[in-house]
């Protein structure tokens, strides 16, 4: 709380009240090599940012997503989004986790594949509370069940919705 609002002097009164923070040193936009996450024991693949739009990607087993999220959380990355892709021909669902770094140009994509007839995966909302809504949305669209999620009720669809519209075999 700010009990005493300062007097308003001259030209730039807010400088006194709230001086802008020091501009954080931002690394120029080169590929972040050597790989800043090399010490993590996660087998990242380097990706050409100019073509793909992200720097590192890794495909992990479905059971490892929480461990990976915990490690990336410790490195100071933020969760960008979670989404699914329905690979119907292959009988699989892909779950894609996007992370970004707050100071370095570093985007990390974590992928995993789960069987389409039993789409279940652990939730990472215990690590990143922001994952809660992304996982609910992914459950809405693809029917992917996030085990341990606090509330998997429909998020964007009506409360009584039982359909999953972004599945490739969905018929309205």
């Amino acid at each position: 709380m700010n009990p005493a609002v300062p007097e308003i002097p001259g030209d730039s009164p807010l400088k006194a009240a709230q001086a802008p923070a020091e501009q954080a040193a931002v690394t120029p936009a080169v590929a972040p090599w050597p790989n800043p996450l090399a010490h993590l024991q996660i087998p990242f693949r380097a990706v050409d940012y100019e073509v793909k739009g992200y720097h590192l990607e890794v495909t992990v087993a479905p059971g490892e997503v929480v461990a990976v999220a915990t490690q990336l959380d410790k490195e100071g990355l933020a969760l960008d989004t979670i989404t699914g892709v329905d690979w119907m021909a292959e009988g699989q669902m892909e779950v894609v986790y996007d992370y970004f770094h707050l100071a370095k140009p570093l985007r990390v994509v974590v992928r995993t594949r789960i069987p389409r007839d039993k789409p279940e995966i652990d939730t990472i909302s215990g690590v990143f509370p922001g994952a809660n809504w992304h996982e609910r949305e992914t459950h809405d669209f693809f029917g992917i069940k996030f085990l341990g999620h606090p509330d998997l009720t429909p998020f964007l669809l009506p409360e009584d919705a039982t359909y999953h519209p972004l599945r490739k075999d969905f018929v309205a």
């Binding site: 609002v5 933020a78 707050l102 922001g130």
Partner: peptide, 15 residues
């Protein structure tokens, strides 16, 4: 002023 504080950590955790 002082209303609705959001910390850096909260911003990062929620993206």
């Amino acid at each position: 002023e002082g209303i609705g504080p959001i910390s850096q950590e909260m911003c990062r955790k929620y993206g």
